[in-house]
Design a protein around this nucleic acid. Structure first.
Length: 211
DNA sequence: TGCCAGGTGAAAG
DNA sequence: CTTTCACATGGC
């Protein structure tokens, strides 16, 4: 069984086990949902989603429900609204810089990566979830799972090609499901006993099964 | 109560 | 190329 086939079978297994995750979550009742995703994608960098949720609610309470509005609002004012978000001063500037790129229409991956504060993961999140452009999102959870599951240490470039399928439902769910797996089982200190993937996982076979 | 969270970029080896 | 650090806060 080649790696891509096995990746897809993992996707199906995770989907059955956890159910569809329906990312990207929406917090705002109204306003520009595309902008909400873009703002949330930056705010959630190295940050608990719960804290981002609170911050997004705060923005909505004060009527900042688009990047354009965000751009036109005083930095110090926004900073007070986002007090639950770490690294917020940087992130506010990043979001304001993003406006210069996204106001002209659908941004390319290259253009997003030119924005200071936007790396590969955030760029791919924006493309996939805000613009529905088929892109695989690689994060720490995906790297860790792949290394353990296949016992292969590959670079991000390879990883992207192994995980990519041209289907936005798969792409959106796969990223969300691997995050769920990483949070519940495939943690830094793995909890393999109840992991839905243990029967196929190279790490589990190597470390825990007796011969 | 300490660890860590849905990263990025700059600096250094 | 890889490792290390600053960025800064709340949740559990």
């Amino acid at each position: 069984m080649d790696i891509k086939e096995e990746v897809y079978s993992v996707f199906l297994r995770l989907l059955c086990h956890f159910g569809p995750q329906r990312w990207w979550p929406r917090i705002w009742k109204e306003g520009n949902h595309r902008d909400e995703i873009i703002i949330g994608a930056v705010l959630t960098q190295r940050t608990l989603w719960k804290n981002v949720e609170n911050a997004l609610k705060k923005l909505e309470d004060y009527g900042i429900t688009s990047i354009a509005k965000f751009y036109d609002t005083d930095e110090g004012y926004i900073e007070r609204l986002l007090k639950s978000v770490p690294f917020r001063r940087r992130k506010i500037r990043t979001i304001k810089r993003l406006w210069e790129t996204v106001k002209y229409g659908v941004p390319s991956r290259e253009k997003l990566l030119e924005v200071e504060g936007i790396g590969e993961e955030t760029a791919d999140v924006i493309l996939l979830y805000a613009y529905d452009i088929p892109t695989i999102v690689i994060d720490e959870y995906a790297r860790r799972w792949f290394l353990r599951f296949f016992g292969l240490n590959v670079g991000d470039r390879m990883l992207r090609s192994y995980l990519h399928f041209e289907d936005t439902f798969y792409l959106k769910e796969m990223h969300a499901l691997l995050d769920e797996l990483g949070k519940r089982y495939c943690k830094r200190k793995p909890l393999c006993d109840d992991c839905p993937l243990k029967s196929k996982c190279r790490l589990y076979v190597r470390v825990f099964s007796k011969r």
